[in-house]
Nucleic acid binder design. Structure first.
Lengths: 193, 193
DNA sequence: CGAAAATTTGACATGACTCAACTGGAGTGG
DNA sequence: CCACTCCAGTTGAGTCATGTCAAATTTTCG
């Protein structure tokens, strides 16, 4: 697949000159992953920032009881990764794994630092991306404190219908902070309500 | 109080030239608030980005049952506000209120846009601040899914001992996503455990 | 077709909430 | 400096939302 969706995504937010586009292009690589493959594995230091060209991935944490907790699901035009460890270049405590065959645009940590130097616009670009991600994250916290599990499920469905179709229910349940069994019961009740 | 802590905070992260410092200074104002006063009120559009010079504030949401949910507590050297509404310059759905008499450094929305233009370093500066805030927020989500209320309380105590001393228990309880009654019981149990 | 993965179902357990009453400071004003 | 109120914190009884565990069923896919 081509890089077009990636550049479209960027240019929708920040117009780039041809030379900037060329510089950026020179720092990108595209990598394909098979369903089930890990992009980031707990304990390894993530070297790349990942943009999803195609496919679908989950980011999750394994707690001390061995349970999986999904913190993020990414599809086309989203970023995926363990941002904290990437930024500090330390060992990941999260995992990122493909739920489908996927293609990612990857930017190496050092190249990204270079890009910030060479194309200050990108600094702004990522500032805005992260700001929005932060606001969304804070909202998610408030939702989890304010709403019941069923309400959160309905809201998710409303907001991300595309994702609900694509990911296994247990992933969605985990993302919503509930067990797969309970989500199953919620869905069942909704049908007869 | 002087602006020194504010500039210290910035320069710890991004060295500024004298002229940059002067430009920045020209866009700042300091405002004092009394305990109980609102800095941002649900329904009003927040015009300023707020840095806490002194004091302590809570950011909270009132749900449809009239219950208060604290999303954030800020003390010296933290930022406070309803970031989402500030960024979009739309009506706040959060409130920011002082828990103590407080002094804030405020930057007007439009001045901030100008500062990004004039001092590209600030773009980086805020990108990094928000990145860290985002990572912290994601962690908070995982904690709330992974840990029990008592564990979250202990972890908070460990991480922010300064804040526990200063805020009323019901604020802390709300921040942790539990009721004040339950936090009271947790504390009680911890004493005899 | 068969095995593995995902989902469902039911009985039971529990963490956390609700509500209401009570306690104990911390102002405040007379 | 007392009386009063107000706000924060505590306590207890009862309840509810969600979790646990284990088994049954369905779907997916090699």
């Amino acid at each position: 697949m081509s890089l077009k969706p990636f550049f479209d995504y960027i240019k929708d937010r920040t117009p780039l000159t041809d030379s900037e586009e060329a510089i950026l292009l020179s720092k990108l690589r595209v990598k394909k992953y098979r369903k089930g493959e890990f992009v980031v594995r707990n304990g390894e230091t993530p070297r790349y920032k990942n943009f999803v060209l195609s496919g679908c991935l989950k980011t999750f944490y394994i707690d001390d009881k061995g349970r999986e907790h999904v913190s993020m699901v990414a599809i086309e035009n989203w970023w995926a990764g363990d941002l904290g460890s990437f930024l500090r270049q330390t060992k990941a405590h999260l995992n990122v794994q493909c739920l489908e065959d996927s293609e990612l645009v990857q930017i190496h940590y050092h190249d990204l630092q270079q890009l910030y130097q060479d194309i200050p616009k990108l600094e702004r670009f990522f500032r805005i991306i992260v700001q929005n991600a932060f606001v969304a994250s804070e909202n998610r916290i408030l939702n989890s404190f304010t709403l019941t599990a069923a309400e959160r499920y309905l809201q998710f469905r409303e907001k991300y219908p595309a994702i609900e179709q694509r990911v296994p229910q247990y992933v969605l349940a985990s993302y919503l902070g509930i067990t797969k069994e309970f989500l199953s019961k919620i869905r069942n009740q909704l049908i007869f309500a």
